[in-house]
């Protein structure tokens, strides 16, 4: 049972909406955070909490690309491949990652550390090429930066190059 320890949080979430089903996406996020993916048992449990059938949960999960139905690597590298990033080198970025880790989009490293995906627009078109790693954005990437990010993630689990509150161009000081 995933949600037993999140009882308060679930209750608070349910209080936000007049209809329980609205809490479906928020609960799926909790489940995914807990297990790394959305498991079948988590979907059943969510169904019970919200009064939905398992297929109702499943049909919703499968619509959204951010939910994974299978375990993925510890760090999910999502490279934006849409036109705006492609114009400034997102295909090169995929190549740099491939050179360092030996994986192509859709693949996971053998040590289960990294999964690489080529995804559509992440809303960071002025600061491409860019990628999202789990919750963090990394922007204006070049080969050197990518190397550092991958090294940092491997050794420290995080990297200081991640973006803060976004403003671009930064105001002139």
């Amino acid at each position: 049972m995933i949600f037993a320890k999140y009882k308060d949080q679930v209750e608070e979430l349910l209080s936000r909406y007049p209809v329980k089903r609205s809490a479906l996406l928020p609960l799926l996020y909790i489940a995914q955070k807990e297990e790394g993916y959305v498991s079948e048992s988590a979907m059943k449990e969510i169904g019970k909490i919200l009064g939905l059938t398992p297929p109702q949960v499943y049909e919703t999960v499968t619509f959204y690309t951010m939910f994974h139905l299978k375990p993925i690597g510890k760090f999910h590298l999502q490279v934006c491949r849409s036109l705006m990033c492609a114009l400034v080198g997102s295909d090169d970025l995929v190549g740099w990652i491939h050179r360092r880790l030996g994986i192509s989009p859709g693949q996971t490293t053998n040590d289960k550390m990294f999964t690489l995906s080529a995804v559509e627009c992440l809303g960071s078109c002025g600061t491409g090429p860019m990628m999202q790693v789990n919750d963090d954005y990394f922007e204006q990437l070049n080969e050197e930066k990518v190397g550092r990010i991958l090294d940092d993630l491997k050794t420290h689990g995080t990297c200081p190059l991640k973006s803060g509150p976004f403003m671009f161009p930064e105001p002139v000081r």
């Binding site: 919703t60 959204y64 690309t65 951010m66 939910f67």
Partner: peptide, 27 residues
């Protein structure tokens, strides 16, 4: 005011798809 996160679907920027998604359905 509450913040509600989508989950990766361009179409949810369309206003009625946004409403469907907010209701916990496919967008």
């Amino acid at each position: 005011i509450y913040v509600h996160a989508g989950a990766g679907a361009y179409i949810c920027g369309e206003e009625t798809a946004l409403l469907e998604s907010l209701e916990g359905k496919r967008g």
